[in-house]
Computed example of a mutant assay.
Amino acid sequence: MDKIGESTLFIDLSALEHNYRYLKSKIAPETKFLAVVKAFAYGSDMVSIAKKMESLEADYLAVAYAKEGVLLRNAGIKIPILVLHPQPINFGEIIDNNLEPSLYSPKILREFLAEAKQRQLANFPVHIKFNTGLNRLGFWESDVAFIHQQLQGRNESKVISIFSHLAASEDKNEKEFSQTQISTFEKISKEIDQKLGYSPFRHMLNTSGIINYPQAQFEMVRSGIGLYGYGNDAKVDAQLKPVATLKTVISQIHKIEPHESVGYNRAYKSEGYRITATLPLGHADGIGRQYGSGKTYVSINGKKALIIGNVCMDMIMIDITGIDCKEGDEVLIFGEESSAEDFAGSANTISYEILTAISSRVKRVVTS
């Protein structure tokens, strides 16, 4: 990588391809693959990631909200896009942009069918979400008859898939619960097939599900965090490559005397002579206050430097005592050499949160 002069998030598409091929190796050749690119592709660059997935012949993309799908269509993305959490106000743009909505409640189903009828659609593709234990979104098993009743005799839309979501696929202590979810979904799928008179394709597995429950891959799997280099398991992480690397630079170095304080509220007080550095990155960039006060470290020239004091809106301060560095030197926040999972874990959170938190004002550089 070229020398940087500001906070920069590097996005490595070759790492993305590596992760995709690793995950594909865990499923049958005929199983479809859905790449989750919601939340700006987990905080990276949604368009670049989506284009790469399209070039790798992924079968589907998924976004959370309609506006994310519209952005991808406007960027020229052609492959099917599932909208996981649509709202009725957005049904028009979903239809106009050939996005495929997840219908997850009686209200959402009725309102989409009304919109489809008004527009005189024919066999517009929809996906039916079932709740098998996560208790976020989805119809219940007992709603199958209602769904059939609403769809019967109508051709404005067609159910092309049914799906659900495992609640604890990464937790081997919850294996019994996950197996129950899978069994419930299998029962639902049989009922749906009987009622509809045809078999929509099915999908239930997320990244950890692909690894831990391959017998439940059905006709498609979905992967988000795994594509970006994290598998919720140290052994899996070792096989993946982080797509995002966040770096910044040292703005200024200070020599701190004993009993001096650093930052707001004097949250850090020196017990002796220390050397500190200020970095142009703060909670407005996604590095929250929970990472301050000596909980988390960054890396300079391969050496660990603790974040000290309270994280500011635009700056963090680190202890560089004993580290050979100077103003303008690069600082690694997270990446392949020091993972986002480790960085997040030091503040008792997860890689998903720090990855998706990196704000749009941080420069993005996409590499292939």
Rank of each mutant, 00 (worst) to 15 (best):
V311Y: 14
I320Q: 07
I182P: 10
E54G: 08
E141K: 11
S178K: 03
I211V: 15
I287T: 04
L279C: 06
Y42A: 02
K172S: 10
E186V: 02
M1E: 04
I89P: 03
T248M: 09
L103V: 01
V362K: 15
G335Q: 11
I256E: 06
L56F: 03
K255N: 15
A114F: 03
S360E: 15
L84W: 01
I128L: 14
D12R: 14
G92C: 02
A145R: 13
L137K: 09
E330N: 01
E17Q: 13
G345D: 06
S183T: 09
S346Y: 07
R110E: 09
G92T: 13
S299T: 12
N212T: 06
Q217I: 06
N74V: 00
N135I: 04
D143Y: 12
A28P: 07
V126F: 14
S351D: 15
L16N: 14
Y213N: 02
L84S: 05
P101M: 10
E170V: 00
T8W: 14
I27E: 07
I333N: 08
D2R: 09
F124M: 13
M220W: 04
S169D: 10
I308R: 08
E176S: 09
E141W: 06
I318K: 04
V249W: 10
E260A: 11
L246I: 11
E353N: 12
V311G: 02
V70G: 07
N19L: 01
E6T: 08
P258Y: 08
N19P: 05
F91Q: 04
R110D: 08
E330Q: 12
R202C: 06
V331F: 02
V243L: 07
I225K: 04
S299C: 10
A344C: 13
Y213L: 03
G5L: 07
G92A: 11
Q118I: 13
V243D: 10
K175H: 05
N348L: 15
L196V: 10
I253M: 14
V63S: 04
F201Q: 11
V365C: 06
K51F: 04
D233W: 06
I250C: 14
E6C: 12
L306F: 12
D2H: 05
G292L: 08
Q181H: 05
Y228K: 00
K175I: 11
L240N: 00
E93N: 07
I318S: 11
K67F: 15
V83N: 07
D143T: 06
A64Q: 03
L56W: 01
I358C: 09
Y273D: 05
D59I: 05
A66D: 02
